[in-house]
Design a protein around this nucleic acid. Sequence first.
DNA 1: TTGTACGCGTTATCAT
DNA 2: ATGATAACGCGTACAA
Lengths: 339, 339
Amino acid sequence: MTRGKQRGEYAVAPTLEDVAREAGLSSMTVSRALNNPAIVRPATVARVMLAVEKTGYIPNLLAGSLASRRSRLIAVVVPQINNNMFVDTIQAISDTLAQRGYHMLLCVGGYASDSEAALVATLLSRKPDGIVLTGIHHAAALKKRLINAALPVVEIWDLTPTPIDMLVGFSHEKAGNLSARFLLDKGHRRFGLLWTGDQRALLRKQGAIAVLQTCRECQFVEAEAGLPATLRLGREGMQRLLAQTPVPDAVICSSDTLAQGAILEASAQGIDVPRQLAVMGFGDLDFAAWHSPSITTVAIDRWRLGEEAATMLADKIEGIMPTEPVRDLGFWLCERQSA
Amino acid sequence: MTRGKQRGEYAVAPTLEDVAREAGLSSMTVSRALNNPAIVRPATVARVMLAVEKTGYIPNLLAGSLASRRSRLIAVVVPQINNNMFVDTIQAISDTLAQRGYHMLLCVGGYASDSEAALVATLLSRKPDGIVLTGIHHAAALKKRLINAALPVVEIWDLTPTPIDMLVGFSHEKAGNLSARFLLDKGHRRFGLLWTGDQRALLRKQGAIAVLQTCRECQFVEAEAGLPATLRLGREGMQRLLAQTPVPDAVICSSDTLAQGAILEASAQGIDVPRQLAVMGFGDLDFAAWHSPSITTVAIDRWRLGEEAATMLADKIEGIMPTEPVRDLGFWLCERQSA
DNA sequence: TTGTACGCGTTATCAT
DNA sequence: ATGATAACGCGTACAA
C-alpha cells in the first residue's frame, strides 16, 4: 500500500491521496474539485473542502507542475534593486503576477552579461512558464537556449525591433537626445555629464552627446559615478565636474538621485540652481517633483512597464498572443525648477 | 519505450535519460556525475559533461526537488519594496542565497496580516526549504501551519523572545526611546511626530512617546503619512505639523525619507534646520549622511540583517543549528546636522 | 460526474 | 563505481 496510512499527525504533509481517503473519493476527483470545481458536483466539492480542512492539505506544486508541465512561476532577472530605478517595476510585476496566480522568482544579477547566462540557466531548471530579462544585450548562447526552449520572454527597459520574443521599454538614446536638445534650446553651451557606467545609461549619454555635437560652440566635460547611484556619488561627481574646464553651466545626470546630489553640492558651493547652473536628472523618481528646487527630468512609467511585462507574459502563457510584441512606452520631459 | 527517442531537435527539453543514452551510461550515473562528481570516476564525469554539452541538457529541478524533497528555494515575504527600507535587506538575502545555491521566491504582500496567511499558503505549495517573514505578528493558523511543517523560518525586522523559529532584528520600541531621549537631552520640549501607520513604525512611536511622557513640561503633536513614505508625504506632513499648536521645535519622523521631506518643507517656509527646528529620521538610508543638512537618524544594519537571515536559514537547512536563534542586531544613533 | 492507469524527470535505495 | 527499480505527488487521457 501507499505510505501515508500509518503515520503520526506531524511532519509528513498530507497528499491528495490522504484527502481522497478522508472524503471517500478518488484522488483525481479531489484534484478536479480543487483546480476546476466547475466540473465537479457541488456536493462533492463540499465534501472535498471539508476533507482538505480536516487534513490541513496544501497542494504540492512541484508535483503538480511536473505533471502538468506548467509551473505558474515567472523568473525575473534585474541588475540591481537598491538603486531605486527598478523597484517600482518589480513591485508592479509582482503585484500583477500575483493577481493572475503566478509567483515571482527574483534574481538580482548585476550588470555583467556573461554571468547572466549562467544565472538564467539555473533559473530555467525551475521550469518557469516565462521570464523577464532586463535589457536587450544577452549572450548568444542564452538567446539560443531561450528560443529553443520556446519559453515566453519579455525584455524590459530597452528597445529593439528584434527582441528575443516580446519587449516593453523605451529608447534610451532618444531620451538622451531629448535632454540635450532641451538644454541646448535653453541656450546652454557648456555641459557637464554626470554618469554611471551601466549599459543603458551609456546609451542615454551617447544620445545626449550626439545632439551636443551638432552644435559647433558646445563643449562638455564628464564625470563618472559608480553603481548604485547615490546622493553621495552625485555630490562627489559634481565636485569633479566643477573642478574641470570649462566649468559647466548645465549638468545632465544619468539619474535623479545623482541630480539631487549634484544640486546639493552646487548649493553647498554657493552656486545657485538653476540661475547659475541647470541640472537635469532621469527617471522622475518620487522625490524629483518635491525636491527644492524641483528636479527637471525625463519621466518614464516604471510601474506600467512592469504591469505590461507581466500581463504580456501571462497572456502569452495562457494562449493570448500579444497584438504588438514590441511596446515602446516612450518618455516625456518634466520641466521643473532645476533646469 | 520512453518518449524522447524519435523527436525533433526542438521544444521538448532533453532529459537525464537522453544524456545517459548519448553517453552510454545509466541515467543514475549521469545524475551522480552532475550532483556529486566526487563519487564518480573522473573519466565517466568527463563523458557525461560531453554528453550534457552535446544535448544542451538543463536539469529539471521540479522533478529533482520532488524526488529529493529539497527544493533549494527560499520564500521571502516583505510588505513593500518601493519604500527603500527593505531593498538592501532583500538584495542581501538574494546575494547570500545565490552564493549558497538557493533561489529566492519574493512575495510583496503589503501590510495586512490576514492576507499574509493566504499568501504564505500558496508559497508553501512550492515546497520551499525555508521562509523569511517580515515582522513577528502573524495569524495563529499560519504559525501553526509553519511549525507543523517543521519548516525553517526566520522572522526579520522586529524582536521577540519567542519567534516561530529563528529571528534577526531589533527593538523598534527601544529605537523610539533613543530618538526621544536624544532630543529631550538636547533641551527640546515641543515635539512633532511625523509617522506612517505600519506596525513597526507605530512601535517606534510608542517608544518615543513613552519617553516624552516622563517629562512633565513636554508636549507633542502628531501627523500621519501614508505608505510608502515619500518626500512628498514628508513635506505635506510637515505642513500639517507646523499648522498645529504648539508649533514643535523638534520633529521625529518614522523614516529618513519623511525627514528629508520635513527638512525641505521647513526650509521652504523659512525655518532653519536645526537652529529653529530639529529633525530626526530613522533608518540611515544612503542619502541621510549626504543631505544638507545631513540627517540625524537611528541607523540599523539593513544589509547584515538580510545576510544573517539568509545564512541562518541555509545553515539550518543544511543541518547546522544556530548557536543563538534570536539575533538582536541593535541600532545606533547617528548624530548629524539636522538635530 | 467520477474513476483507473500511467507518465512527468528526477533521486533514494539496494544490488552488483 | 555503476546500474535497476521504485518512489516523489500530481495531472492527462481515457474509460465507465
